[in-house]
Computed example of a mutant assay.
Amino acid sequence: MTTERRAVDGELCTCGRTAVTVFITEKFGETGWCGRSDGGSKARCVFCNGTEQHEPGGRCPRYRLRLDTGEASA
Rank of each mutant, 00 (worst) to 15 (best):
residue 1 M to I: 09
residue 1 M to W: 11
residue 1 M to H: 12
residue 2 T to H: 12
residue 2 T to Q: 12
residue 2 T to Y: 09
residue 3 T to M: 07
residue 4 E to D: 12
residue 4 E to F: 05
residue 5 R to N: 09
residue 5 R to W: 03
residue 5 R to E: 01
residue 5 R to L: 02
residue 7 A to Q: 06
residue 8 V to Q: 13
residue 10 G to V: 06
residue 10 G to E: 06
residue 10 G to Q: 02
residue 12 L to M: 01
residue 13 C to F: 01
residue 14 T to R: 10
residue 16 G to L: 05
residue 16 G to P: 03
residue 17 R to Q: 06
residue 18 T to G: 12
residue 19 A to K: 09
residue 21 T to V: 15
residue 21 T to Y: 07
residue 22 V to W: 09
residue 22 V to R: 07
residue 22 V to M: 08
residue 23 F to R: 15
residue 24 I to V: 11
residue 24 I to E: 15
residue 25 T to H: 04
residue 25 T to A: 03
residue 25 T to M: 12
residue 26 E to S: 12
residue 27 K to H: 12
residue 27 K to D: 12
residue 27 K to R: 14
residue 28 F to S: 06
residue 28 F to N: 14
residue 29 G to W: 01
residue 29 G to V: 01
residue 29 G to K: 14
residue 30 E to S: 01
residue 31 T to F: 15
residue 31 T to G: 08
residue 32 G to C: 13
residue 32 G to M: 07
residue 32 G to L: 11
residue 36 R to M: 00
residue 36 R to H: 06
residue 37 S to D: 12
residue 37 S to I: 04
residue 39 G to Q: 02
residue 39 G to V: 10
residue 40 G to A: 10
residue 40 G to K: 10
residue 40 G to H: 07
residue 42 K to Q: 13
residue 43 A to N: 01
residue 43 A to S: 13
residue 44 R to M: 12
residue 44 R to V: 14
residue 45 C to S: 07
residue 45 C to A: 08
residue 46 V to K: 01
residue 48 C to Q: 03
residue 48 C to A: 10
residue 48 C to K: 07
residue 49 N to R: 14
residue 49 N to H: 08
residue 51 T to F: 07
residue 53 Q to M: 02
residue 53 Q to Y: 04
residue 53 Q to F: 05
residue 54 H to T: 15
residue 54 H to C: 07
residue 55 E to D: 02
residue 55 E to H: 15
residue 55 E to Y: 10
residue 55 E to T: 12
residue 55 E to F: 15
residue 56 P to F: 05
residue 56 P to A: 05
residue 58 G to K: 14
residue 58 G to C: 03
residue 58 G to W: 06
residue 58 G to E: 00
residue 59 R to Q: 15
residue 62 R to K: 05
residue 63 Y to E: 03
residue 63 Y to P: 13
residue 65 L to M: 04
residue 65 L to N: 08
residue 65 L to K: 09
residue 66 R to Y: 02
residue 66 R to L: 00
residue 68 D to F: 11
residue 69 T to K: 03
residue 69 T to V: 09
residue 69 T to A: 00
residue 69 T to Y: 00
residue 69 T to G: 01
residue 69 T to I: 07
residue 69 T to M: 05
residue 71 E to P: 02
residue 71 E to S: 04
residue 71 E to G: 10
residue 72 A to S: 09
residue 73 S to K: 05
residue 73 S to Y: 06
residue 73 S to M: 08
residue 74 A to T: 14
